[in-house]
Design a protein around this nucleic acid. Structure first.
Length: 465
RNA sequence: UCCGCGGUAGCUCAAUGGUAGAGCAUUCGACUGUUAAUCGACAGGUUGCUGGUUCGAGUCCAGCCCGCGGAGCCA
């Protein structure tokens, strides 16, 4: 019978069975093949310790001088890091091993003996730019490997969260006719005899899906030609964008909170090993179990004023410095990076800030009936300096209002008319949000740079490798 | 675009204006229980570029190039 857990295998029992390193603990006493790459080598004149990794783990293969032929021993002695090998060995219990077992080599088959592998084994990340130039090799190293495993789990958790709730996966196009939000910079690409633009959000398309399916989720890459040079920005990143018909702001906040809680909890549960390798202090992550504070923009101004005063008087050099930048943008304006950092320090868990002034938000946001100077939007701010991981809200559903907004924001009517059709033919209250996958992974892993959370980061100065 | 920091061996960093240095990695050697092994040895350089001051510049000055961090904008 087909077993989805296992790759097709050699079933010829005259040769040893191949196992992944993570499975070895279940095969003590068997002679097995392990296929992989030499992570590191230690040894003496008469015994060699080969650290072999295969992507599922690392195991130590012990090679005594009398266990193999002299030729094989000498080859093993000279093997360079990242040499590709197939080791035939007996699996033995070993209390000193981190995975509980080690291999006693019977036969060493070298596929390629590598010399001068450029990346050395090191746990610090001294020169990220140098390593990113070698990203195609760096992904083999422990730390990037662990981060990308977490990313994989996060993406899987997101997909399952929405699938379980009956959302339809609804793919938005990458080539788009023009700006979705009108303000941010777009990548322009030639498209036969015309110009097209790479998408900076699938949201407007998501809204069409909400009217067709009720609940949809757009999940794909997004492109922003902003010349940002910070540890939170990429020019190409992945975004998950749910969009739901008949959902109003409180429901949107419930959905965002549930989703963040689900993804973080799942990563904590499934990525214990990886988070240990990353030396991640998970205490703040565990606080996602609590309710996320929901604070309006207006209330937050007061909180920030108090934090500014408290930090300035704290005597803590870092907090005093931060206090100088709090509310730097002034009342009525968007929050700055320092404000988000302060919010994180204060609440120590994700915080939802809702009802921003309409001027600082996009044209399609619905006005708050209680005070039309504000819109029914919500940002989720992650603590520990990561900042905004989610932005979203309730969409304007009134045709006349949207038509005014289109004129006010100087959006070419012919590029947006199809969107206005959604308000002509059965308009309903609806909304959703977008979550940046990389920022979410950045928070979970505690990464300094968002660049480390995607296999091949694209930034203003990097399109290689 | 603006502000700040930086560029010395493959990597991380030293070097009052006076012979260009160390640790790690590489290469070679020693060791039968190492976990980023340890110990010993060899090798490794147009000090980002151009010009200037000086008897003498990695160091001081001017210009340029490149990189990083932050702001703005955003997820």
């Amino acid at each position: 019978m087909f077993d989805p857990k296992h790759e097709p295998r050699n079933t010829n029992h005259e040769t040893p069975m191949h196992y992944e390193i993570r499975e070895l603990k279940d095969h003590v006493g068997e002679i097995v093949d392990v296929r992989g790459w030499l992570y590191n080598r230690r040894g003496s004149g008469k015994i060699l310790f080969l650290q072999v990794r295969d992507g599922t783990g690392t195991v130590q293969a012990v090679m005594g001088k009398n266990d193999v032929s002299e030729a094989e021993f000498n080859i093993g002695k000279g093997l360079g890091n990242e040499s590709s090998v197939i080791v035939t060995a007996e699996v033995k219990t070993e209390p000193r091993s981190p995975i509980g077992v080690e291999l006693h080599v019977k036969k060493l088959n070298v596929l390629q003996d590598v010399k001068d592998y450029p990346i050395q084994i090191s746990e610090d990340v001294p020169n990220i730019d140098w390593l990113l130039d070698r990203r195609h090799l760096w992904v083999r190293s422990k730390v990037p490997h662990a981060i990308l495993k977490v990313r994989s789990e996060v993406v899987q958790a997101i997909r399952e969260f929405y699938y379980q709730r009956g959302f339809v996966l609804y793919d938005a196009p990458i080539f788009t006719p023009a700006s979705c939000e009108g303000v941010s910079t777009l990548f322009e690409v030639p498209y036969f005899d015309e110009k097209a633009y790479l998408t900076q959000s699938g949201q407007l398309y998501g809204e069409t899906g909400a009217m067709a399916f009720g609940k949809v989720v757009v999940f794909g890459p997004t492109f922003r030609a902003e010349k940002s040079k910070t540890r939170r920005h990429l020019t190409e990143f992945w975004m998950v964008e749910p969009e739901v018909a008949f959902l109003e702001l409180d429901g949107i906040m419930d959905l965002a909170e549930d989703q963040v809680r689900y993804v973080v909890t799942r990563a904590l549960d499934k990525c214990k090993e990886e988070l240990k390798i990353l030396e991640r202090d998970t205490s703040i992550l565990e606080r996602v179990a609590e309710r996320f504070p929901r604070v309006s923009y207006g209330e937050m101004q007061g909180v920030l004023q108090k934090l500014k005063a408290d930090f300035a008087a704290s005597g803590d050099e870092k907090l005093v410095k931060l206090s100088g930048d709090i509310l730097k943008n002034g009342l009525g304006d968007d929050l700055g990076a320092a404000d988000e950092t302060a919010v994180g320090i204060h609440y120590k868990r994700p915080v939802m800030i809702h009802r921003y002034p309409s001027e600082v938000k996009a044209f399609y946001m619905k006005r708050d009936p209680a005070d039309p100077n504000f819109v029914l939007c919500v940002d989720v701010i992650a603590p520990e300096g990561v900042g905004e991981v989610i932005g979203g809200g309730q969409r304007a559903d009134d045709l006349k209002y949207l038509e005014e907004q289109v004129i006010k924001h100087k959006i070419p009517p012919e590029t947006i008319d199809w969107y206005l059709d959604l308000r002509r033919f059965g308009s309903v209250p609806h909304g959703g949000f977008g979550m940046g996958v990389e920022r979410c992974v950045q928070w979970i892993t505690g990464c300094e740079h968002v660049r480390e959370t995607i296999p091949f980061p694209r930034t203003i100065y990097r399109t290689k490798p």
